[in-house]
Structure formats: C-alpha cells, structure tokens
C-alpha cells in the first residue's frame, strides 16, 4: 500500500507543480474526456485523494485520478466540461503539457473495507473517482467479499467507460447495475430507466454490514445518501465525496470549509455520520 498520510508540506513549496505530458485523450461522452498523463516523476497517491490540475496560463481545478493508485508512472483523469478551466482542458491534445500538484486529502480507509460487501454508487462523471477505487479494489479482489456498482447517467450516450464494463463483469464478485434517466430517440438501452437510486432496489447484499461509497452531482448525493440509509447502510459506513469549491487543496484558502472541517484536507471523502449535522452539505 502506498502511504496514506497527508502530504507533509513543511519543507516544500505547497504550490509546486509537476509537469505532466498528455499521452492520450479519450472521448467518453459528448461532455466528458479522459486524459492519460505522465507526470515528470512517478506520482504516489491513495485512492480517494485528489490532485490540482493546471492548464498553463488558464487556471487550475481539483480532480480525482480515475486510474488505479497502483499505477504510478501514468495517470488517467476523467473530466467533464462544465466551465472555464474544464473547457480549456477539453481543448488539450496529445503532446500538450499540463501541470499537477498533490496528492491532497485523505484516501479511502481500505482496511475497513476488507472482507466486506462494497457498494459503489456513481452518477455521471462521479464514476471517474470511483473507477480509481474500483480498479484498486480489483487489484486486491480477494480481500473483499463483493463489489456492487450502481451507475447512473442522463442518457445512454452520457455513460462513461462504455467499453470497460464487460471487463469488470468477468469477475464473479462484481455485480453491475446501470440506469439512465431517459432514452432519447435514436439511442439504444436495455437496462434500467430511472434515477440511479432505483438501482438500490435490486442490490443483493446485507446492507447492515456493507460499506457504500458515493460520488455524483449534488442532487444524487443527497437523495442517494437518504436511499442508502433507507436500505439499511449505517451512517458510518456511507462514504461521501464532498466536491466543494477549492483552490489550494491543503486547507489555506478556506473555500471548501464545511463547518469545522475542510473538504480538502479532512476529506474530500467523509462518512455520513461525521458531516450529517453540518449545515448545507448538499449544496
């Protein structure tokens, strides 16, 4: 296991950026692309941690790698085009240069997942950080009882990692459930239709003792969490990615503060019991 401790920034410039070459750009959906990058030095992180990605001269934004943390030479980052920086990222081509710094935040406490049923609940580009977790879990698949993936997207076309589900389905321990909100004319779909929480009706695990990990748009996080609680998951076993506005990544800029916590350095993943009483967690 790579080291889980938060980065010690005492003796380095915490803003320091590593150069990263763009090796490949994969179009996942009309608004989402995956960038395969090679940082100038091997980059260690733990699944759950995030990086700040620089588009030189444009800006920086936080993203979670979508490749396994066992891969240190290269990294995938899957990015949805939603605004200023992400639009600039989407213009990046193979051979261009980006910058990364980090990793920041705490990783998933994988030790606590061992021997358990793990449920992964993702919506839209929220599956990106969860793919990092999934690939890491697959690497040590014997350690876990089962992995259930509930994944929702707006339409079939918006589904990311379209070609990878077949690889994952090959594992006996992995169960995949997918839904789309709607099927526009001309698109094909023979799985479930409805918001992602409808998939929770079909899960076949003992939720009392299982862990659930969720990442997705704010509305999914809110109703997804309520549904997980409803299905019997314990608050302390529900892991939520809190994607707040962030600049620094290490607890200086204060933009991500949730009550007394910093989403960046105390999170970005929190268990529900820790933050449920803080104000405005879903917005």
């Amino acid at each position: 296991m790579p080291k889980v401790d938060a980065l010690d920034l005492t003796n380095l410039n915490p803003y320091d950026v590593l150069k990263a070459d763009v090796l490949d750009v994969i179009t996942e959906s009309p608004t989402i692309k995956t960038f395969r990058i090679k940082p100038e030095k091997p980059f260690e992180f733990v699944t759950g941690q995030f990086v700040e990605l620089t588009v030189p001269g444009i800006g920086e934004a936080p993203f979670t790698p979508s490749s396994s943390h066992y891969e240190k030479e290269e990294m995938d980052i899957t990015i949805m085009k939603v605004g200023f920086v992400t639009e600039a990222v989407h213009r990046v081509k193979r051979g261009d240069v980006l910058g990364i710094r980090g990793p920041y935040g705490k990783g998933y406490p994988l030790d606590k997942f061992k021997g358990k049923d793990v449920l992964i609940l993702g919506g839209g580009v929220g599956l990106a950080p969860l793919r990092c977790l999934l690939l890491t879990l697959i690497h040590d698949i014997d350690d876990y009882k089962s992995i259930t993936i509930c994944f929702g997207a707006r339409t079939p076309e918006d589904l990311i990692y379209k070609n990878q589900f077949d690889d994952w389905r090959k594992y006996d321990k992995i169960h995949i459930l997918r839904s789309v909100d709607m099927i526009p004319e001309g698109q094909k779909w023979d799985e479930k239709v409805g918001v992602v929480t409808v998939l929770l009706d079909d899960i076949k695990i003992n939720t009392k003792d299982a862990v659930a990990v969720a990442c997705g748009p704010p509305i999914m996080m809110k109703f997804g969490t309520f549904a997980l609680v409803d299905k019997g998951f314990k608050d302390e076993n529900i892991y939520l990615s809190m994607e707040k506005k962030m600049y620094c990544g290490f607890g200086q800029c204060r933009h991500c503060v949730i009550g007394k916590y910093y989403a960046c350095k105390d999170g970005p993943v929190f268990t529900y019991d820790v933050i449920k009483d803080e104000e405005k967690i879903w917005e």
């Binding site: 803003y15 320091d16 030189p56 910058g99 600049y247």
Partner: peptide, 17 residues
Amino acid sequence: CYCIILNDESEKDCFKK
C-alpha cells in the same frame, strides 16, 4: 481574514501561481 484565490500565470511548463 486570510482567504485567497489562486491564479495561474504559467507560461507552458514554467509554472507560476
């Protein structure tokens, strides 16, 4: 009060914040 934003003024791989 010490809240800040970070702006990027990098030129290619000469990173400036």
